[in-house]
Amino acid sequence: MKNTIPNRKVICDVLMEHAKEDKDIMVLCSDSRGSASLTPFFESFPEQAVEVGIAEQDLVGIAAGLAKAGMKPYAASPASFITTRSYEQCKVDCAYSDTNVKLIGISGGVSYGALGMSHHSAQDIAAMSAIPNMRVYLPSDRHQTRHLMEALLKDEKCAYIRTGRNPVEDVYTEENCPFEMNHATVLTEGTDAAIIACGEMVRPALDAAALLEEKGIHATVLDMYCVKPLDEAAVIKAAQNAKAVITVEEHSPFGGLGSMVAQVVSANCPKKVVNIALPDAPVVTGTSGEVFEYYGMTGEGIAKKVLEAIG
């Protein structure tokens, strides 16, 4: 059965479950509570909700102030705006000042489809990863999102979490969702190719592995939800055993997962690394599904690239 629950709704569910007991949990939005699926939180916990209006710099600055006072703020705003409009607040007020602010980038990547480049976040992984003391997470499905949120609620450091707008097909099940904080999840193991994906690209990466398996090609698939800190040991292990490494991300080809994996592979176990990503250009107009199809960011498209890479 097709999943109809977007990851952003799971974030709201987890925060609501904990907010009952933990009055330090605060949720901040910039006229974005509907887009973030956080309206139920605002209705149930008005004393723990903060609306700042369309003002992302204020959003992140206020969140940092709340955190400095010992609260646990979760600031949710479209990924494109929270990471670039308020980039300096993320850098100075959160990471540099070492405040416990969780930055939730909703509708990440090309989620907003036909709304154009202003609303696409194809730079967020690169931008946020370049900030010392900032962590970057892209959960792949609703089950992993729950585990990630539970883990983040327990720590006191800042982090950026990117989710998409639409429901994504499950990678895991409620009962079977192995999760270890800051460690990639190995979904399949094979020595012909290593496919390393993050966020919404994990599901098509897994589909690609199934298609390749039908041709007798065995691929390792890593769910690298923790883009920073990157699970380098998992990358090296997967790359060492493979003929080629293929990375898949809903991001610019520069400075994201592919760049980071290529750095690790070239320094430790030199091998061909092929990066599947959005182009360095305004993205074609369409729904996110149409965009992925167009750029070969689907099971079939990824399988084709793997075949080319391993010759």
Partner: peptide, 14 residues
Amino acid sequence: GHGLPVAVGLALAA
């Protein structure tokens, strides 16, 4: 331009 929003957050927490 960073101090005032942070101060708003601190005051709001109190």
